[in-house]
């Protein structure tokens, strides 16, 4: 109902917007900031498609309200690449066919980014557990696991 002005940083850029309380973060990103890379899937926290990083940690953007995020720092899939140069995790997904339709991909990339920062040399079991909250209906997950394993090598360098 009563809108409120919020200021937050998304992918390094500062935004000030007026938001209605019931606007979820994912709708805010897509509709108010025109950052449509974050996908809306189940809208109840099950599919993981809308995963973004909030202050560096993965969260479901369908389960947060934009109005809560005054002062927050958010990273979406648009913040991964450096200009035309893909992030190493994106490059690994491309190289290993870790995506088909691409709907789950933004959430998986950000989930993988946060995971690899904490687990620089994960086992396949750890990778599978880490992405258990991100549903993919195309790949059967094998190539996603391959991609994340390869990205771990790349991130370690």
């Amino acid at each position: 109902m009563t809108p409120r002005l919020i200021r937050l940083t998304v992918n390094g850029r500062a935004y000030t917007r007026s938001v209605e309380p019931r606007t979820t973060l994912v709708d805010f990103l897509r509709d108010d900031l025109d950052l449509t890379g974050t996908h809306v899937g189940c809208e109840h926290g099950v599919c993981g498609a809308c995963t973004v990083l909030l202050d560096g940690q993965p969260v479901r953007s369908c389960l947060l309200f934009a109005i809560q995020l005054d002062g927050a720092v958010v990273t979406t899939v648009e913040g991964l690449a450096d200009g035309e140069r893909l992030h190493p995790i994106q490059e690994a997904f491309r190289e290993h066919h870790g995506l088909q339709c691409g709907f789950c991909t933004p959430g998986l990339l950000l989930t993988a980014k946060a995971f690899l920062e904490e687990h620089p040399a994960p086992s396949d079991g750890e990778i599978r557990e880490a992405i258990a909250g991100n549903l993919c209906r195309c790949t059967g997950y094998h190539f996603i696991v391959d991609a994340i394993r390869a990205a771990a090598g790349g991130v370690r360098r």
């Binding site: 926290g45 993981g48 995963t51 993965p58 969260v59 479901r60 389960l63 946060a114 880490a130 909250g133």
Partner: peptide
Amino acid sequence: IGHTAIRVR
């Protein structure tokens, strides 16, 4: 409990 992204919040 859920997944990492759930437990973060």
